[in-house]
Computed example of a mutant assay.
Amino acid sequence: MFVSADNPPHLKIHSYRAAVQYMVTQTRDDFPHGVIRLVVKRGAEMPFLQYAKVCLQRLGIDPSEVPDSVMTAAQSMTADWRRVVAFYTLRLSLAPLVETALLLDRMMFLYEHGIPSILLPVFDSALSPRNFALLACKPSTS
C-alpha cells in the first residue's frame, strides 16, 4: 500500500469501520449495534475488501451473505474517508461539551427541586474525560 501525506492509512480506518457498519446493517437489520468493538491488527494497511471480510467473519457473518451491490457501495464509500475523519474529529471535539451540558442540566434539575448537589471529579481527567460524579443528598421529609 502506498503511503503519503495525502493518504494516511491510520485515518482511513475510520471510513473502513463506517463502511463495514453499513454492510452489516444492510445484511442483518436485527444486528445489535455497538455491542462488539472490532480491532483488526494492521487493518489500516489492508485493502478494504480484505478488512471487511475479516470484520464480517469476526461478527459471525459469512461474507458471501453480503450482496455484491452492498459490497460495491461500501467500498465506494471509503473514497470519502476525509469526510468521515472530519465528522469523527468534530464528534470527539464536541463530546465533552455535550456531556458537561448534560451534567449541568441534571444538576440544575436537582437544584430546582430543592436538592443540593455537586459535581465532583472522582479521578484524574487524563485517564478519562468522564471523571465527574454528580452527588446529591435528598433532604429528609420529617
Score class of each variant (00 low, 15 high):
residue 66 V to M: 03
residue 92 L to H: 10
residue 110 L to E: 10
residue 47 P to L: 03
residue 99 E to W: 13
residue 54 V to T: 07
residue 31 F to H: 09
residue 30 D to T: 11
residue 120 L to E: 11
residue 63 P to V: 03
residue 103 L to I: 09
residue 56 L to M: 06
residue 101 A to N: 14
residue 113 H to M: 09
residue 102 L to S: 14
residue 90 L to Y: 10
residue 85 V to E: 02
residue 38 L to E: 02
residue 110 L to P: 14
residue 117 S to A: 14
residue 84 V to P: 01
residue 111 Y to N: 14
residue 49 L to D: 03
residue 122 V to K: 15
residue 46 M to V: 03
residue 73 A to Y: 06
residue 114 G to L: 06
residue 31 F to A: 02
residue 86 A to H: 12
residue 36 I to D: 05
residue 34 G to S: 05
residue 93 S to P: 02
residue 52 A to Q: 00
residue 79 A to Y: 14
residue 53 K to I: 00
residue 62 D to C: 05
residue 66 V to C: 03
residue 121 P to Q: 08
residue 71 M to C: 04
residue 72 T to D: 02
residue 52 A to I: 00
residue 42 R to N: 05
residue 120 L to V: 14
residue 87 F to V: 08
residue 86 A to N: 08
residue 76 S to L: 06
residue 48 F to C: 00
residue 114 G to Y: 09
residue 84 V to S: 03
residue 48 F to S: 00
residue 86 A to I: 06
residue 63 P to G: 07
residue 69 S to M: 13
residue 106 R to L: 15
residue 58 R to Q: 13
residue 62 D to L: 07
residue 78 T to S: 05
residue 87 F to W: 12
residue 99 E to M: 12
residue 116 P to A: 03
residue 62 D to Y: 12
residue 107 M to I: 10
residue 32 P to I: 04
residue 78 T to L: 02
residue 118 I to E: 15
residue 65 E to Q: 09
residue 69 S to P: 14
residue 100 T to P: 10
residue 47 P to T: 03
residue 78 T to Q: 01
residue 59 L to M: 14
residue 99 E to T: 13
residue 116 P to R: 05
residue 28 R to H: 13
residue 69 S to F: 11
residue 100 T to G: 13
residue 43 G to W: 00
residue 71 M to G: 01
residue 77 M to G: 01
residue 38 L to C: 04
residue 115 I to N: 11
residue 60 G to I: 08
residue 113 H to C: 06
residue 53 K to C: 03
residue 80 D to I: 03
residue 69 S to I: 13
residue 105 D to Q: 14
residue 78 T to C: 04
residue 47 P to R: 02
residue 116 P to H: 06
residue 40 V to W: 00
residue 59 L to G: 09
residue 32 P to D: 04
residue 28 R to A: 06
